[in-house]
């Protein structure tokens, strides 16, 4: 057993499942919004606003947002632990990896809060 505290679920199976489920949620969201945009061509500000002011769409979008963050975090965490490893880079890898991970979390948190703010101010 390899222990790790920075992975999302601290368990490979958990992360693996979240990665797959979030991918499906994102696919459904993007296909839905894409179809909506194509079918309401030319898309007006009013139609767009109407779509996102409905409660269910806000909740759906919120779920998609959380999925995006979880999906991105698991992916970026995997990349960081692949490439910034002590095995490849020596001692400085740990500090670098932590830095990259903190930066990723910060960016994802900002995007998440910003999107929630936009969503609820429509």
């Amino acid at each position: 057993m390899v222990t790790n505290v920075t992975s999302l679920g601290r368990n490979g199976l958990h992360d693996w499942l979240v990665q797959r489920i979030s991918a499906v949620v994102l696919l459904v969201w993007f296909v839905y919004v894409g179809c909506y945009a194509v079918l309401h061509e030319p898309l007006t500000y009013l139609a767009w606003q109407g779509l996102f002011s409905q409660t269910w769409m806000r909740i759906f979008t919120l779920i998609a947002l959380f999925s995006l963050c979880a999906h991105a975090w698991i992916g970026l965490w995997t990349i960081a632990t692949d490439y910034f490893s002590v095995h490849l880079m020596g001692k400085k890898a740990t500090a670098l990896r932590l830095l990259v991970q903190v930066a990723c979390v910060a960016v994802l948190a900002v995007y998440l809060l910003w999107c929630i703010h936009i969503l609820w101010s429509i």
């Binding site: 057993m1 390899v2 790790n4 992975s7 601290r10 368990n11 490979g12 992360d15 995997t78 692949d82």
Partner: peptide, 12 residues
């Protein structure tokens, strides 16, 4: 199985 469920052993 318990030895293998972490994020690295199998899931890499």
């Amino acid at each position: 199985l318990a030895e293998l469920e972490d994020p690295f052993s199998v899931f890499r």
